[in-house]
Simulated scan of single mutants.
Amino acid sequence: MKEIIQAAIEAGKEIMAIYETDFEVEYKEDESPLTIADQRSHEVIKQSLEENYPDIPILSEEGRHLTYEERKQWKEFWLVDPIDGTKEFIKKNGEFTVNIALIRDGKPVKGVVYAPALDDLYVAEEGKGAYKVSSVLSNTRKDYSLNAESLPLEKPNSHVAKVVASRSHMSDETKAFIEDLEDKYEKVETISAGSSLKLCLVAEGKADFYPRYAPTMEWDTGAGQAIVEASGGKVKVSGENTSLTYNKKNLINPWFLACKSNFE
């Protein structure tokens, strides 16, 4: 995992160098924002992964998007979002992340989420658990396992339901989900967060539910899903008992619900 972690951190450094300036914002065909930070982060990660894992293909939000015919035979690949939460980056609220996941047979088996403005790192590997490392850049030895905390950090409260929702995307369906919880629990608390930090909050135990009843792309969720599942949680397709899968013909995710394993 060291090479993946270091790639995310180096990308984070590039992002922060731009974050602290008056950068320009462009818009892609789908009207989503793009900055030079997205592009530089992509290049740093791409170079590192190609050097260390030359036989594993890369699917990045800011890279060339291959057709399904070209990628359907992939048994494993890197799934990358150079900046998840570009809107949060533009707002300068700190709630954006670098996401790198290894997908194997449609399932995320390794994940790294780094929030450079917060200097928080989340790491997961199937069968080995999920961990959080705070104040990453102050760790000069680069042995992040020394101050890694095993996830979840907090135990659930059977009387209180904590729901994390997007700062930028609160749909009517999400509001209805929260209202339904109010009939089941003594108290419902809503937490706002941006980017894949919402999934990380579920993994930490700071949130019990993350309903996402609005569009996301595969690169938005792969790394975060790896962290939730390695911490003992679930990321299920809404209304089904099946997990989100990857390298679909259509890279848009279905609606989903992330929750701790003791919640359904």
Rank of each mutant, 00 (worst) to 15 (best):
E186F: 09
V202I: 09
Q6A: 12
L251M: 12
E186C: 08
K162D: 05
V235T: 05
P215N: 13
A223I: 04
W255P: 03
S138M: 08
E182W: 10
S238M: 12
T216M: 11
E264C: 15
Q73C: 13
A258W: 00
S261H: 05
G239D: 08
D22N: 06
E240H: 14
R71A: 08
L153Q: 11
E20G: 15
E126N: 09
H65T: 09
A117K: 02
P33H: 02
C259M: 08
E264D: 13
K75S: 14
N262Y: 12
G129L: 02
S195A: 15
S171E: 03
Q225G: 00
E173L: 11
A124M: 04
C200K: 02
E154V: 15
T221Q: 03
Y27Q: 09
S168N: 12
K206E: 06
P33C: 05
K87F: 00
R167P: 08
K132C: 07
H169M: 13
G194M: 01
E24V: 12
C259D: 01
I56T: 00
E76K: 14
D30R: 05
L151Q: 04
Y185V: 08
Q73E: 15
S41E: 05
D81N: 09
V163K: 01
L137C: 12
N250P: 02
N93Y: 03
K175M: 13
V123N: 03
V80I: 12
N241G: 11
N241K: 15
R64Q: 15
I227F: 04
E264W: 10
P215E: 12
L251S: 08
A117L: 04
V237C: 07
A193R: 01
Y53W: 11
P57T: 01
A161K: 00
K75V: 11
V113Y: 02
E88H: 00
K236A: 08
H65D: 07
K91C: 06
R141F: 04
N147W: 02
A226Y: 00
G194R: 00
S158R: 14
T190M: 07
K260P: 01
S171V: 04
N52C: 12
D105Y: 13
K2C: 09
T67V: 13
D183S: 10
E20T: 14
A161I: 05
K132T: 05
K184Q: 15
D180N: 14
I58P: 03
G85S: 12
Y68A: 10
T190L: 13
Y213H: 06
Y144L: 04
R104E: 15
T21G: 09
P211R: 05
T140V: 11
P254R: 04
E126R: 07
E218T: 02
F209R: 04
H159C: 13
D30S: 10
